[in-house]
Structure formats: structure tokens, C-alpha cells
């Protein structure tokens, strides 16, 4: 057999690992339904219920709360889908699938990349489905902002899948992972400007929001949605350049950490 060079099939490995993530997802119908229904319900209930009492001062145009909340839901979908996609790391280890990958001639980078790309595609796909709901709002979709939104969703999903991977790699049960999600992920989302704007918040909260990397992904999503800083800028919302810079850095750091942590063998491999 003509053995390819050690990492000669990097792209093929990434492709097949990511492909498997997608197939697995679509073959678990409850995952598909849940992942799509939850944000729709969330958006409908919160958007309608809170709009009467909540008047955020966002942008000169003074958008309604449902519209303010809309990109927030996009980010929530990305966050949850991307992070939940990495639950498969734990399942793969528990079900034994991972051991086969670990002894295959696949570089660690390819293995991590395959997982992250799989989660990224899943999250972006669901974000895209949800964007269709935006047609009910007064948001003008043009090829330009749709392209921008896809770019942002891919980038942000990649970073978030990486974040999930870092936690999932060393975990032995999915229960533990749920704890991480409620303690870390939910506050991360709530304090990203998705739910309420940073402006007007107490100082400690304001700074927590500014230090949250997801705040920048959130702002980037808003900027991409309007492609008009006049509509998406507000006090406490990072400008487009800063938001893009921080989000790219976030993605790179998450990949680097995932790569590093995947070099460790954990007890689960030796069960």
C-alpha cells in the first residue's frame, strides 16, 4: 500500500470528521427539532412579552425590542449549537469511537479541526435557518449583509465550538458538561449585550460585559445585520473593527487551546 505522507491527508481527515458530525446530528431527530424550536419559542415569548416594558436605547432608529433581541437570538443559537456539538467529544470517548480516531494516522490538528469545523457548520446552518424569521421584521436583507452575517456566524461558531471543546475534552460525563453550560455559557450570553445593552448598567456589570469576548461577537453580528454603524452603534457596543479584531483573536485562541488540550490523554481513553 502506498502510504500517504504523515499529514498528507489533512483536508480529507477534516472533511470526513466534520461530515460525520453533520450526519450524526441529522440522524438524531430530537436534536434537530430541539435546536430549532427552542430559539423560536424564546424569541417569540421574550420579544413579545418584554417589548412593552423595555425600551433599549439602541441606535438612532430606535428599533423595537423584538428587533433588538433578534441578533441576540442568532448568537444564542450559535452558542448553544456550537457548544452542544462538542458534547459529541464526550460521547465519542464514552462510546469508544474516539479510540479509533486516536490510533489513526491523523494529526492532532486535523482531529481538532474536524471537530471544530463540524460544530461550526452545524451552528451556522441553524443560525441561517433562524435568519429566515428575520423576514418578519423590518430588517432589510441584501446579498451584502447576508454574506456578512454568514462570515460572522462561521467565525463566531468556530470560536464557540473551540470553547466547548476545551471543556468537553477532559470530561467523562455529559452531566458535568451541562453544569459548565449553565454556570458559564448562559451568563456569557446574558452579559454579551444580547439580552440588554451595556449602556446604563452598573459599572461592575458594564465592565464584565466589556471583558466578555462574546460581547464582541454579539456586536459584530449586529454590525453585520445592518451594515450601517449608524443603526448598530450605541454606547457600550464595540465598533465594527474592534469587534472583528477581538472575535478573530477569540477564535484563534480557542483553536490553539483546543489543540493543546487534545494532546493529553485522559482517564476515559484508558477505561
Amino acid at each position: 500500500m502506498a502510504a500517504p505522507a504523515a499529514t498528507g491527508h489533512f483536508a480529507l481527515s477534516v472533511y470526513t470528521l466534520a461530515w460525520r458530525e453533520l450526519v450524526r446530528f441529522f440522524r438524531q431527530r430530537n436534536r434537530v427539532t430541539g435546536a430549532f424550536l427552542q430559539p423560536v419559542i424564546f424569541w417569540a415569548l421574550f420579544g413579545a412579552g418584554l417589548s412593552a416594558s423595555f425600551r433599549p436605547d439602541v441606535g438612532a432608529a430606535g428599533v423595537g425590542y423584538a428587533e433588538y433581541f433578534f441578533p441576540g437570538i442568532v448568537v444564542m443559537i450559535l452558542l448553544f449549537t456550537a457548544i452542544f456539538a462538542t458534547v459529541s467529544v464526550i460521547e465519542d470517548r464514552r462510546e469508544g469511537f474516539l479510540q479509533g480516531v486516536l490510533v489513526a494516522p491523523v494529526s492532532r490538528g486535523a482531529m481538532v479541526m474536524g471537530k471544530l469545523v463540524g460544530g461550526t457548520l452545524l451552528a451556522t446552518l441553524q443560525g441561517a435557518i433562524f435568519l429566515l424569521l428575520g423576514l418578519t421584521q423590518d430588517i432589510a436583507f441584501t446579498p451584502a449583509n447576508v454574506a456578512a452575517l454568514f462570515g460572522v456566524m462561521l467565525l463566531l461558531s468556530f470560536a464557540l465550538t473551540g470553547l466547548g471543546f476545551i471543556f468537553a475534552w477532559r470530561m467523562e460525563s455529559t452531566q458535568g458538561f451541562h453544569a459548565v453550560i449553565s454556570v458559564l455559557m448562559l451568563p456569557m450570553w446574558l452579559l454579551s449585550g444580547a439580552f440588554f445593552p451595556a449602556a446604563g448598567a452598573p459599572a461592575w456589570l458594564y465592565w464584565t460585559i466589556q471583558l466578555n469576548p462574546l460581547t464582541y461577537g454579539m456586536a459584530l453580528t449586529r454590525h453585520a445585520l445592518y451594515l450601517d454603524p449608524a443603526k448598530s452603534s450605541a454606547p457600550g457596543v464595540p465598533g465594527p473593527e474592534l469587534a472583528l479584531g477581538v472575535t478573530v483573536a477569540f477564535a484563534l485562541v480557542m483553536f490553539a487551546l483546543s489543540y493543546k488540550i487534545a494532546g493529553r490523554r485522559v482517564a476515559g481513553d484508558l477505561a
Binding site: H9, V23, F97, Q99, V101, P105
Partner: peptide, 20 residues
């Protein structure tokens, strides 16, 4: 070490890709 959600054939194809 099989993925139960994949068919026998798909498991093998996936594995083959990992080996180039």
C-alpha cells in the same frame, strides 16, 4: 469503536478517509 448512527459502509468509508 463504531459510530452507531452511521451505517456499516459509512463507518468504513469514514475510517478509510482517516487513513488517506
Amino acid at each position: 469503536s463504531l459510530d452507531k448512527k452511521l451505517t456499516a459502509q459509512e463507518n468504513l468509508i469514514h475510517h478509510g478517509h482517516l487513513y488517506g
